[in-house]
């Protein structure tokens, strides 16, 4: 069964130097089990292909039903050095929510 991430989670993003910080929060416990299982470092790295050029770090916050990701080498140098339209990665969380996940029934 295919699930749209935006149907089970919300998120918030911003910058940490040249890295994008993307938080993904599930609306309920079942949603958290899905994001915990399927939003792997590899899956997120592939999703942001052509956007994130560095390592992806992943952190679990079960207490908030959330995962936090650091997407390194993503913001075109960061700060005022960056020429990107979204130099602070404010829309990266919405970009993450575009993901569709194939889950086992």
């Amino acid at each position: 069964m295919k699930i749209k991430l935006i149907d089970i989670a919300h998120g918030r993003s911003g910058d940490k130097g040249d890295a994008g910080n993307v938080g993904v929060l599930a609306y309920n416990d079942a949603g958290y089990e899905i994001i915990k299982k399927y939003l792997t470092v590899e899956r997120v790295k592939k999703h942001f292909e052509g956007i994130c050029f560095g390592e992806v770090e992943r952190f679990e916050l079960p207490n908030l039903r959330a995962l936090n990701f650091l997407l390194h080498n993503t913001l075109g140098g960061g700060g005022t050095v960056s020429l990107k339209f979204d130099a602070q990665g404010k829309t990266l969380a919405a970009a993450m929510l575009r993901m569709e996940i194939e889950v086992e029934d």
Partner: peptide, 11 residues
């Protein structure tokens, strides 16, 4: 919770 995840790096 959404604000708690804002730009925190390693939680």
């Amino acid at each position: 919770a959404e604000q708690l995840l804002y730009e925190i790096g390693d939680p």
